[in-house]
């Protein structure tokens, strides 16, 4: 899976170049993100603006990443389509589990603020 990666200070911004994150590619997606985490990134911003469909397998992959990050890490999302937002709302994962921002800047700020609060 092609995932573009950029760095903004301590925040790693990942942009999956796929339209769908679903059962057929969720494992690949998860492995790609685990690879990034294993290189030391703990603050992850996910740019989902290419993704117009996600199912519960995609959610499970994101939750697995969150668990892998543990208490030291956090994930913020932006570019979330209406369809994907609906999925997060139905499963109640938009309520504090994942930080969902409207812009990249806001997503980065969410993680930097969270970092400041802990330090």
């Amino acid at each position: 899976m092609d995932i573009q990666e950029t760095q903004h200070n301590a925040v790693t911004i990942l942009s999956p170049q796929v339209h769908r994150i679903e059962a057929s590619n969720a494992q690949t997606f998860k492995n790609a993100l685990i690879d990034v985490i294993s290189r030391g990134s703990t603050k992850i911003v996910l740019d989902l603006h290419h993704v117009d469909f996600m199912d519960s397998s995609g959610l499970a992959a994101l939750l697995a990443i969150l668990k892998r990050l543990g208490q030291n890490g956090r994930i913020a999302l932006f570019g979330v389509s209406a369809n994907v937002r609906k999925l997060f709302a139905i499963t109640r994962l938009d309520n504090g589990i994942f930080a969902i921002a409207d812009t990249e800047e806001e997503a980065i700020q969410l993680l930097e603020n969270a970092s400041g609060a802990h330090e």
Partner: peptide, 23 residues
């Protein structure tokens, strides 16, 4: 739906499919 949890370590990874369908 699996109950929301404050601690992400308590969150179930799977088991949301039927909840999504019925919602």
């Amino acid at each position: 739906v699996p109950a929301p949890a404050c601690d992400c370590s308590e969150i179930r990874l799977r088991g949301r499919g039927l909840h999504i369908i019925t919602s």
